[in-house]
Amino acid sequence: MARKSHVQTTINGETVEFLCESRQSLLEVLRDELYLTGAKEGCNNGNCGACSVILDGRLVNSCLVLGVETEGRSVETIEGLAEPDKLHPIQDAFLENAALQCGICTPGFIMSAKALLDSNPNPTEHEIRYWLAGNLCRCTGYDKIVKAVMDAAQETSA
């Protein structure tokens, strides 16, 4: 069996320790070791964005990060967004706008939208569409997703 490394990292604000093989992606670590199954595996090669998480404040595809690379770093996933009794405004906006159908792309879109609004609280529609270009959705046709992000921007920057 392949040797495992001990990794300590911060996930959604909490210090987490895990053992993983070098070849395990951050996505695999999140899902298979830590049972945080919000981030999804779509393509496993960087094209679909279903695995999007925020690493040290920056949006990344967790399928293209090794688990061992996250030593000492900070990861935000969809599980960290809502408060116990309240959804995050982006989550609310997705529900209000019916911006999801099967939902497999949704955690990725929401993390991507969060990274956008963290860095640019008032994006134009054009900026939203470009920012989200790395997130694919097979169901909605994107318009409702873009509308949801615009609404969430208004809500959070108001």
Partner: peptide
Amino acid sequence: IGGTAIQGR
């Protein structure tokens, strides 16, 4: 190069 998430890495 790629999209936002790719450009982050």
